[in-house]
């Protein structure tokens, strides 16, 4: 974390007419790093990704915050400049491979279109490159698949095509918004393996949005846990999974079924976090207070900021932080 980050999101607040689903959220992604953003549905993960790309729906407004990408303030870029960033420097793949491809264009045409726009390739060389890219994302028989319409492809194949389009211009950062949620478990691992190998080969950084902690342990370098639009905890993946600090992270981990825990779900009760994320609405203090087993009166006054608690580790929970050994602020380096 010593070099300047590739992506630096800070103080991001996204406002809708009905509320602020993302509030004062920030994190960094270093070049070549895989950062997982974890949280349950409605915690603002996807909105954050859309805000970075400046693709928020019209009703949403960025109230405060900055997004710096390679030192450039993306929110200050004029729209034509931003279009050059999208797809070429930051690419994004979406959750729904079934609907994210244009149904009336062949996959080859769709991949070629990206190349023609950003790289200025001719139709012929774009097509050649599209076949190479299909091969790169391990689509079998790319020469034939290039002329297929999306409805002929399975979900996993479509997601590979989406990935091919995203990496066509070798972006510096790939944002993958729940890339495997809509896929079979067997395909999930293949797609994540593919993303990992592409990240290494192309030298990309990967921002992996997920609610699946199993993915985090295996593929992420660092994890940012989000709850109700705020950062709850940030740590190296192994440290976070091995020793979760925030009550929410602990709850999430406890709620994840483990293969070694019991033979059958009836043999032991699956733990859950009581309540729902909607209880965070209108909470003046820590958004997790209504569901938190450690809640104290002081938690209800103001939302706690992310504070360094250990080297490379941030936590937004003063009661837990108080139980930890005090650290030398200089050693944290943030």
């Amino acid at each position: 974390m010593s070099k300047a980050p590739l992506l630096d999101v800070s103080g991001l607040t996204i406002a809708f007419p009905g509320g602020t689903p993302v509030a004062d959220f920030g994190f960094r992604v270093a070049a070549g790093e895989t950062v997982a953003v974890v949280g349950e549905s409605g915690s603002g993960k996807s909105l954050t990704a859309l805000a970075i790309m400046r693709l928020l729906p019209r009703t949403a407004r960025i109230a405060t915050g900055t997004v710096r990408f390679q030192g450039r303030d993306l929110f200050a870029l004029p729209e034509p400049e931003m279009r050059k960033v999208r797809g070429r420097e930051i690419a994004m793949i979406f959750q729904e491979p079934m609907t994210s491809l244009n149904p009336v264009l062949t996959v080859g045409k769709q991949i070629a279109e990206v190349l023609r726009l950003h790289e200025g390739l001719s139709a012929e060389s774009a097509r050649k490159r599209a076949i190479e890219l299909l091969d790169l994302v391990r689509v079998a028989d790319p020469h034939r698949r290039v002329d297929d319409f999306p409805h002929r492809l399975s979900g996993g194949m479509r997601q590979r095509v989406m990935i091919a389009m995203a990496v066509a211009c070798t972006p510096k950062l790939l944002i993958a918004d729940e890339p495997t949620t809509a896929l079979d478990v067997t395909i999930q691992a293949q797609v994540l393996d593919l993303l990992e190998s592409l990240r290494r080969d192309l030298g990309m950084a990967l921002m992996l949005i997920t609610h699946d902690l199993g993915i985090v342990g295996q593929w992420a370098d660092r994890v940012v846990v989000m709850y109700a639009g705020r950062g709850a905890e940030e740590a190296e993946a192994a440290a976070l999974l091995g020793d979760p600090l925030h009550p929410y992270t602990r709850g999430l981990l406890a709620a994840s079924p483990r293969l070694d825990a019991s033979l059958h779900y009836t043999a032991g009760t699956l733990r859950e976090i009581p309540g729902s994320i909607s209880s965070a609405i209108g909470e003046p203090g820590c958004p997790f207070v209504p569901r938190c087993p450690l809640a104290q009166p002081s938690c209800r006054t103001a939302p706690p900021p992310l504070m360094p608690v250990r080297p490379g580790r941030l936590l937004a929970c003063p009661p837990v932080a108080a139980t930890l050994e005090p650290i030398d602020a200089a050693a944290v380096g943030r």
Partner: peptide, 15 residues
């Protein structure tokens, strides 16, 4: 979704 995806690829309005 495919229109959002297209915007995410940096396509302009005409395209």
């Amino acid at each position: 979704d495919f229109v959002t995806a297209a915007r995410g690829l940096g396509y302009g309005h005409l395209r």
